[in-house]
Every structure is written in structure tokens, then in C-alpha cells.
Computed example of a mutant assay.
Amino acid sequence: MLATIERLQIITEAEDLAKMILQSEAADEYRKSYNKLYKDAQTQEKIKEFIKMKDYYEDVQRFGRYHPDYKSINIRTRQAKREMDMDENVARFRKAENALQDILDHVSMIVGKSVSQHIKVPTGNPFFAENSSCSGGCGSGGGCSCSA
């Protein structure tokens, strides 16, 4: 692969775009919420408890409802997940993560559609799926029987 001036310009502009995204308010909020999430001892305890219960849950699922602890593990796993999800730091992090992901999805769509209207851009967000019967971003080349 030869390095042409055109390729170098594209790479430079892509790096500039990445820098702008990294300096954005959304990226700043993401970093702050990420740091808070991993530095708060109570939040980390909730996450660890959920992971532990999730492991138990996966173990119980091998036997299904015939496992003697099936019902209690199911309930305890859901409670641990609710505790974790209701934590202020987890909620703030998820909100910041989604905001940053939206920016990246928009940029991907703009770049992809500026190349060609037929480019499939995997966003995973049904908002971006235009005239398609799938939920967007299948990337299977029509294997999911979408109309894209």
C-alpha cells in the first residue's frame, strides 16, 4: 500500500476529527463518569455483587428450573442487577456512554453516506436505519432478510 498525498490528507483529517470528539463535552462527561464509577467503593461493591450473582445464575441455568436454588438465585440476581442499575454512578456512566455513542453513530453515518448512499453503516441504533426492515447495522449483507 503506497502512501499518497490523498491518503495522508484523509488520515490527517480523520485524526483531527478524533481529536475534536475527544475534546467534546460528551467525551469529557464520559471520562468523568467513568472515573467516578470506578473510584466509588459502594458502586464497585454493587457491581461485584451483581457479577457474583450472575455467575451463580449462569450455573443454575444449566439445570433450569430443576435446580434446587433456581427461584432464589433468579430473585437475588434480579435484585443485585436492580441495585447496580439504580446506583447514581452507574446511571450517569450509561447516560454519558450513550451520548458519546450517539456522536460516533452520527459521524459514522455522515462519513458512510458521503461516500455512497448504499454503504451500510453498523450503528446498532434503529434511529439510523432508513427504509430498512431490520433494526439497523446488521452487517450480514441481507442475511437477516432486511431490505437494505
Rank of each mutant, 00 (worst) to 15 (best):
A41N: 07
I21L: 12
K19C: 04
F50E: 02
G64V: 00
L17M: 10
K54E: 07
F63I: 00
Q42D: 13
K36L: 08
M20T: 11
E15S: 04
A27D: 08
Y57P: 00
K48Y: 00
A18N: 05
S33A: 13
A27S: 14
E15C: 00
I47E: 06
K39W: 07
N35M: 02
K48H: 03
E29S: 11
A14V: 05
G64M: 00
K36E: 12
I21M: 07
L22A: 13
Q23I: 01
S24R: 09
S24P: 13
Y30P: 01
K19H: 05
E13A: 15
Q42E: 14
K32V: 12
V60C: 00
D55W: 07
R31K: 11
I51K: 11
Y38L: 06
D55K: 14
K32H: 08
I21D: 03
F63Q: 15
V60M: 00
A14N: 03
D16C: 12
K39Y: 07
A41S: 11
D59F: 08
R31H: 02
Q61T: 05
S33Y: 05
Y57Q: 14
M20F: 11
K39V: 02
T43P: 00
Q61G: 09
Y57R: 09
A18L: 05
L22H: 10
S24V: 10
E49G: 02
D59N: 13
S33E: 08
A18H: 03
A26L: 08
Q61P: 04
D16E: 14
I51F: 01
I21K: 04
E29N: 13
D28I: 09
A18C: 00
I51C: 03
S24T: 10
A14G: 04
G64L: 01
K46M: 03
